[in-house]
Computed example of a mutant assay.
Amino acid sequence: MNITTLNNKIDQVRKFNRFFTRKIGALREGLLHSSFSLTEVRILFEIANGNNPTATKLRRELGLDAGYLSRILTRFEEQGLTERVRSEQDGRQFHIRLTSEGIKVFFELDQRSRNEVAELLNTLSEDEQQKLLKAMHDIETILDKKSSKFSEAVYLRSHQPGDMGWVTHRHGVLYAQEYGWDERFEALVAQITADFINHYNPERERCIIAEMNGEIVGSVFVVQSSETVAKLRLLLVEPKARGFGLGSRLVQECITFARHAGYKKLVLWTNSVLLEARHLYAKAGFKLVEQEEHHSFGKDLIGETWELVL
């Protein structure tokens, strides 16, 4: 690449950076009309959505200087926004979590951010929105060299006509192949997806579909159980898409959505034979709270209820 071509490309990248930071309001003295900087708001977001991270994890995830991060965390503590809790697994480590005041501040900032993005998206047609989201995903995956080649190609979206048929069909096929479950499980999935569509509340419920190169490779649902409790349902990852972190990504998307929707608890029902799924739930912070033997789908099973306090 000659120097002229390189300089032209550098200028284009810098031009886009200037445009985008202005468009999202990152140049304001206080982000989201607050007294917090962009970095401080991002740290609050990671604490709120990171399952009580340690300072080390925050520094690694955000790529911040240790001293700079420490000063911000100290200021948060002095303001009563965060607190440190000694780890039960390793007494040398401390987890950082939001206080009640910190949760209040974070959700106010988060709602302002969501409102600003909604205002931006509402100026675009559905086709323009999809093009924008796809372009953003392409930028993220091209620049994120830490991700595997497969996971970079995965695109998450909300449900569209025809998706419920895919969810029902693939659950029926895969659970018959992998666990020997009969068609009554497929009937259960069909009922769950029908109830989701017939009673869909977009403010409180979500279906997440994972695509790779236009092909669906995974799905998961968050549905309302009560005003304070949501259910995670129908997590599925196609065999060829397993081992790349997609399952964990789908579970985390559900947790984030449930928090934003204002739920206090996220629960799920699974069976002890689903070892990979159980591992994902435990890794995400869910706790096993109940077990019961039952005969369903042509098999003797042990049903399990797991829950996560949000």
Rank of each mutant, 00 (worst) to 15 (best):
T4L: 14
T5V: 14
T5N: 12
I10P: 00
D11E: 13
V13Q: 10
R14C: 06
R14F: 12
K15C: 10
K15M: 09
R18G: 04
F20Y: 14
R22E: 09
K23R: 06
L27T: 12
G30K: 08
G30Y: 08
H33T: 05
S35E: 14
F36V: 04
I43L: 14
L44S: 07
E46M: 04
E46C: 01
G50S: 02
N51W: 05
N51M: 05
N52L: 08
T54N: 04
A55E: 14
D65M: 02
D65W: 04
S70W: 02
R71Y: 01
L73Y: 03
T74F: 07
E78H: 12
Q79S: 10
L81A: 02
R84L: 03
V85M: 08
H95M: 10
L98Y: 10
E101L: 14
E101C: 01
G102E: 04
K104S: 13
K104H: 13
N115L: 09
A118H: 08
A118I: 04
A118N: 15
E119W: 02
E119K: 11
L121N: 07
N122I: 00
E126G: 02
Q129Y: 01
T141V: 05
L143I: 02
D144Q: 11
K146Q: 12
K149M: 05
K149I: 00
Y155G: 00
G162L: 11
T168I: 02
H169E: 14
H169N: 10
L174E: 09
E178K: 10
A187Y: 07
A187H: 13
A190D: 13
A194K: 15
F196I: 00
N198I: 00
Y200W: 13
N201K: 11
E205T: 07
R206D: 00
I208V: 15
I209H: 10
E211G: 05
G214F: 06
E215A: 11
I216H: 09
V220T: 15
F221I: 00
S225C: 06
V229H: 11
A230H: 03
A230P: 05
K231M: 09
F244D: 00
G247N: 06
Q252P: 00
F257I: 04
A258G: 15
L266D: 00
N271P: 00
N271R: 12
L275E: 12
L275V: 09
E276W: 01
R278F: 04
F286I: 02
V289N: 05
E290G: 06
Q291G: 03
D300K: 14
L301Y: 02
I302V: 15
E304Y: 06
T305I: 11
W306H: 08
